[in-house]
Design a protein around this nucleic acid. Structure first.
Length: 596
RNA sequence: GCGCCUCUAGCUCAAUUGGCAGAGCAGCUGACUCUUAAUCAGCGGGUUCUGGGUUCAAGUCCCAGGGGGCGCACCA
């Protein structure tokens, strides 16, 4: 026990304090560490209240006595209250200092010394090569072997051993590649080595210059002849040996990126996936556009929008819930193959597969239909899988080691047909299993739904909603391979054209991958008269209190009346695509997810 | 929105029935020319999320608020 040692030696508080002062003599004067630092003053005041004549109990540490005294002292409570009031008046700069802790103060003192003697934040350092390049160039070096290759490299200090006259430090590059640097007193000199020990901390960016060698233990190293701080860190790095908590990782993603390969890989995978999508689109002659985020009417999907306000126009605007109606205007204008990868915003629930803002891909192909757009979607995803798979094939490997095959042509099943098939298999009640068709009444569907515990709000429940719910209950859990589910009920898809031969359904598919809906595709509705009817029906729903129903977009209808070519259209969640490729949750696929 | 769980040192976590708030890493001082989660000796570090309450005594029990998680609802 640390307190007992001092007590046994019979040392008084004053002796301890004197030793503390001597300890900091020279390099880190006590005055400097606490001057103008409110937290320091508070700490001293608290300690001074400990010196009020009470004695330490046997075996008790100083800190234990402090906390005992604090509890017993009303005066201490009042002083804390007073401090909080005073703190509210501190400037932002002082506040920054108030938030500091001991480890930060020590680093700030080192920063001061660096600035006084040279620079803690040089405009640049003379880097000659990358850590990765050095590792590749000298992969086969034997233990103890030396080279004449002189390099200048920089990286973040992630490991440090200050051992006597030979120091070791591991530098990490942004790509996660690491290399060791060795500083011997013989090479850099006594002063330089002492300065290194005194000034360099875990987390600093460090430049080193010297020969590439392998240590006696075989570790590839730079044998340093010259070093320089590239950027002094004033906060300590988190413990790199224990796993960081989920909340900490999300809120401090930059530290997550330093500490965890998987976090870094996610960013790269996402970039490669986006590049792959754009490349595949380009191969097919698609043009990328950017349509408005701020919209006066929200449309293109059934979702609750975020509302914001324009001061210039003095009007409320909606953050877009989908780019669809603008991309279709582009189709009218003759951009026959068009796509957009950008953010949508939906004011709805957030969980492991839903985020308030999410990246969405939408694509429209004039003179295509929902079959051609399904072909394209399959190709887009298979190309993306190749871009992120370890061997460039169509099988990706998740972080948990499981392999997921996206190759071949994916099944295309019928919504009603697959539902009836599964219903027949699982039917246990007396009599024959019911056949669900577009004619099946809401009452009948409601009874079937009730039997498996599905209830819908009677105000907005329709034939289509019940059929989709029943399908999700009976069929969806059994899907393992990527599957296109085709031909949906008309009433849930107001922007889609009726099926060319099957009455009562629309030419729409949902693509299910790993148990969730990854993309949806349509033969787009081109008839402006029917489009207007659908919008009016939706706005009546809105009047009836469904906040997700669409508004009538007169400007869009006008565009439609000039003639939109027949087209296939598709929408895909980029975050969900990443989830399918990596097996991670949506908060892991988004670099900086929204946190409260 | 509703229900349940959770919040302790810079980080990861302990703390028995309500009974002196601890460990590892990180940090400080010293030793060490082959360390790599080094080792050895010594030391510092806490508003136990916040505010009330019960109690001789609260990290622990109660109430309210905040952050986070999970489930339900809504949605992609």
């Amino acid at each position: 026990m640390r307190g007992r040692g001092a007590a046994e030696r019979g040392e008084t508080r004053r002796h301890l304090a004197a030793r503390g002062t001597a300890r900091h003599r020279g390099r880190l004067p006590r005055d400097r560490r606490t001057t103008d630092i409110r937290a320091g003053r508070r700490r001293r005041r608290r300690h001074s209240s400990c010196d009020s004549g009470r004695t330490r109990r046997p075996g008790e540490t100083h800190r234990q006595r402090c906390s005992r005294d604090r509890r017993a002292s009303n005066e201490g409570e009042r002083m804390t209250e007073h401090d909080v009031t005073a703190e509210q008046q501190l400037s932002a700069e002082q506040q920054l200092v108030t938030d500091s802790n001991e480890q930060r103060e020590v680093r700030l003192a080192k920063r001061d010394r660096l600035l006084a003697e040279g620079d803690a934040y040089p405009v640049s350092v003379p880097v000659t090569t990358s850590i990765r390049a050095v590792r590749e160039r000298h992969a086969g070096l034997d233990a103890g072997e030396e080279t004449d290759d002189i390099v200048g490299i920089a990286g973040r200090v992630v490991h440090i051993r200050n051992t006597g006259r030979l120091c070791f430090v591991a530098l990490q590059a942004g790509d996660g590649e690491r290399i060791q640097a060795m500083l011997s007193q013989g090479e850099v000199g006594k002063e330089s080595l002492a300065a290194f020990k005194e000034l360099v901390d875990l987390g600093d960016h460090l430049f080193v210059h010297g020969r590439v060698i392998a240590s006696k233990r075989g570790e590839l190293s730079v044998f340093v002849d010259r070093w320089q701080i590239a950027s002094k860190a004033i906060r300590p790095l988190p413990n790199l040996h224990s796993e960081l908590g989920e909340e900490f990782r999300v809120r401090n993603r930059y530290l997550d990126l330093i500490a965890r390969d998987a976090a870094r890989d996610m960013v790269i995978t996402r970039a490669h996936t986006n590049a792959s999508l754009r490349h595949t689109f380009a191969e097919h002659g698609f043009v990328e556009v950017e349509t408005p985020m701020l919209q006066t009417v929200h449309g293109g999907a059934s979702a609750r929008p975020f509302v914001t306000h324009s001061n210039a126009f003095d009007m409320d605007l909606y953050l877009r819930i989908a780019p669809e109606l603008f991309l279709k205007r582009a189709l009218v204008g003759g951009i026959d193959r068009v796509f957009e990868i950008n953010r949508n915003f939906r004011n709805e629930g957030a969980d492991s597969t839903h985020s308030p803002e999410f990246a969405m891909l939408e694509a429209y192909e004039a003179y295509g239909d929902y079959h051609s757009i399904a072909d394209l979607t399959q190709e887009l995803i298979q190309d993306a899988a190749k871009a992120s798979s370890p061997d460039g094939g169509e099988t990706v490997v998740w972080g948990d080691g499981t392999a997921h095959d996206y190759s071949g042509d994916w099944d295309r099943i019928d919504l009603y047909g697959s539902l009836n098939e599964r219903l027949a298999e699982q039917w246990t009640a007396s009599g024959a299993a019911p056949q669900i068709t577009v004619e099946t009444s809401v009452a009948e569907l409601s009874a079937l739904a009730d039997a498996v515990g599905i209830t819908l709000d009677p105000k907005t429940a329709t034939h289509g909603k019940f059929v989709e719910e029943l399908w999700e209950h009976y069929v969806k859990p059994g899907l393992t391979r990527p599957t296109f589910v085709m031909d949906f009920p008309l009433d849930t898809s107001p922007l889609t054209r009726a099926h060319r031969s099957k009455p009562g359904v629309v030419e729409k598919w949902d693509l299910y991958v790993r148990g969730f809906e990854l993309a949806t595709g349509y033969s787009e509705l081109a008839d402006p008269v029917i489009q207007r009817q659908r919008f009016v029906e939706q706005s009546l729903l809105a009047a009836a209190g469904d906040p997700e129903a669409m508004q009538v977009d007169e400007d869009f209808l006008t565009a439609m009346e000039y003639g939109m070519p027949p087209a296939g259209g598709m929408g895909m969640g980029i975050d969900r695509l990443l989830m399918a490729l990596t097996g991670l949750g949506i908060r892991e696929t988004v670099l900086f997810p929204l946190v409260r």
